[in-house]
């Protein structure tokens, strides 16, 4: 393709786009909607994942050792615990240590100062690899002889996992539907252009233009609609994300949630939006011109 051709295709593609203002507007609009919904659900899923990871790191299972075990016996459980699947680490905490930690939390309260460590139990603080399997891991640990009781906050973990899974399913379904709809609308917009230009297309064929040459302006048209959709969607996503972040930060209960700043996410968001927008646009244009180019 010669250099002067590229300018020509770009010009033709652009003027095609403007000759069907309303349809192009609809096509770009639906692409923006597609990308925005895709982006929003993905960003929610990314944040939920990040929260889960925090939770995995902070959330420990506490396994209390049977009172009848001596300190040596209790310490011997370490290897058994670490052998349990999904256990990342097991740290032994003696009741004396536990008492010290507990009292340290209330430096101003006298009533805890002379407590007897004997009222507490030796315990293991267990960290796990996969939060989704917290329930099985808890049950396995409970079954180990010498472990009296296990505390795990599986409900909280379960809630986050549900949010993440639901978000993922809805996200995938919506993306697929909107993707197809976007391609369809762009395809129809370009079909209108090919209809408007059928005389020109007929003449180009008559004088011996190649299919590739005839195709390019329409591919450009789709490309530019997709790219425009991606750019608009990106800035809308940015605005939306910033607003939600501000809302979360200013809300007393939600403040605890750490939202990933957009600055850390904009590069992949921009890249994915651009790629998806272009894919939609070019896909739509190719599907529009597939038929009429067969002799």
């Amino acid at each position: 393709m010669a250099k002067h051709d590229i300018g020509y295709f770009a010009h033709e593609g652009l003027s095609n786009m403007f000759s069907h203002g309303f349809m192009s507007f609809a096509a770009v609009g639906i692409t923006v909607a597609c990308l925005l919904i895709m982006g929003t659900f993905t960003l929610v899923a990314v944040n939920a994942n990040e929260l889960l990871r925090d939770l995995e790191q902070e959330n420990e299972i506490l396994a209390y050792v049977d009172d009848s075990y001596t300190e040596t016996e209790a310490k011997a459980l370490q290897t058994t615990l670490e052998a349990v699947p999904n256990v990342a680490s097991a740290v032994y905490i003696s009741k004396e240590q536990a008492m010290e930690d507990f009292v340290a939390q209330y430096p101003d309260e006298d009533m805890f100062q002379d407590l007897d460590p004997e009222i507490l139990r030796d315990r293991y603080a267990i960290k796990i690899t996969d939060l989704e399997q917290i329930r099985q891991t808890k049950e396995t640990v409970e079954g180990i002889p010498g472990i009296a009781r296990v505390n795990a906050y599986e409900e909280i973990a379960g809630g986050f996992i549900t949010v993440r899974n639901v978000a993922t399913v809805i996200c995938v379904a919506l993306i697929v539907i909107l993707f197809v709809v976007s391609v369809f609308i762009i395809s129809n917009t370009i079909k209108l252009t090919t209809f408007d230009r059928r005389d020109e297309i007929a003449i180009m064929r008559m004088v011996g233009a190649t299919n590739g040459f005839i195709r390019w302006p329409f591919v450009y048209e789709g490309f530019m609609m997709g790219l425009l959709g991606a750019v608009i969607a990106f800035f809308s996503q940015w605005g939306l994300y910033a607003a939600v972040t501000r809302g979360v930060d200013n809300n007393d209960t939600l403040q605890l949630i750490h939202v990933i700043p957009f600055q850390e996410l904009w590069v992949p968001v921009a890249a994915v939006f651009a790629a998806a927008g272009i894919l939609i646009g070019v896909g739509g244009s190719l599907s529009a011109i597939r038929k009429f180019l067969q002799v």
Partner: peptide
């Protein structure tokens, strides 16, 4: 086909100008 058509110049009764 395009290469073959480039060896021909075609004129119709109804002109077919844009």
């Amino acid at each position: 086909i395009p290469l073959m058509r480039r060896t021909l110049g075609i004129i119709f009764q109804d002109f077919r100008l844009i």
